[in-house]
Design a protein around this nucleic acid. Sequence first.
DNA 1: ATACTTGCAAATGATTTGCCAGTGT
DNA 2: ACACTGGCAAATCATTTGCAAGTAT
Lengths: 155, 155
Amino acid sequence: VSVPQVAEPIGVTTVSSAVNALRVHGLRVSAARRLVLEALFTAGRPLSADEIAGGLGGRLPPSDLGSVYRNLDVLERVGLARHVHLGHGPGLYAPAAAEYAVCEACGEVAQLADASLDALRAAVAAACGLQPRFSHFPLVGLCERCQLRTARNEF
Amino acid sequence: VSVPQVAEPIGVTTVSSAVNALRVHGLRVSAARRLVLEALFTAGRPLSADEIAGGLGGRLPPSDLGSVYRNLDVLERVGLARHVHLGHGPGLYAPAAAEYAVCEACGEVAQLADASLDALRAAVAAACGLQPRFSHFPLVGLCERCQLRTARNEF
DNA sequence: ATACTTGCAAATGATTTGCCAGTGT
DNA sequence: ACACTGGCAAATCATTTGCAAGTAT
């Protein structure tokens, strides 16, 4: 049973700073690799390897799926990207720092804001000792709206 | 993005009461189906479909993997079983009620005790509004021991 | 120049499905 | 008897890997 060991996330938000980070690590910057960065940093949401290889529906040139997986792997090792499992289906890749919450009733995906994250981590640590991270598996549960909806139906 | 909708767990802890529950739902009790129950209720830990089909290393007769998957699906629909993803690798099946925590550093898997669960749920709800459940994806983070170990290494 | 990368294809692992013969009720 | 279920094989989906040719440094 293993959750992947993850590199410390690099606080990078643009393609060109990501390219610099690659160079610093002695890694090459090929066209295919740059495309993966382009996709991750412009999509604004987690992407599957397949979507990236497909070129985001025409917004970018398509590329080879195998190579996309290999490049995502490189980016994860360096701390520029991470993958999440938001539910069933393929793993989804995004820039490194984000953590997520998913409502199991309505399926809404929320990126946890830095502010609430600190409170959340402290609360969980106090309640059960574990210092949590929601970047590989999200926090899953009922969102406030669905809690209300559920409560109403139960009369 | 979808976390599976889950049937309300049935508070059943023995094979024979599970068999009753199946009958109540109008479902047949075949040899193969009973074997799956036998495996789930005697293993004491979450099992992969493959382990169940393999007969738990000789403790039970082996059976067909495809049928095991179909039966696990039936048991999930009825609320007798659930599957969790504790990390990468195959989904793991267990009796329905349990929720889990995994340490990302040492890999230790803990079943969350009912007592700490209430506090935990309340703490998370207070911190971010979501009422959490850790039965499909576990709570992932650093356990207390590994928090200490990490802190020590950082000097 | 040379080690790292690509693109393509084939391999792998997990899970699902089609089908027909067998069985629980 | 009849619909449900089991066993076996083939299909599917996500991901990984081998290899020969191409490219960044």
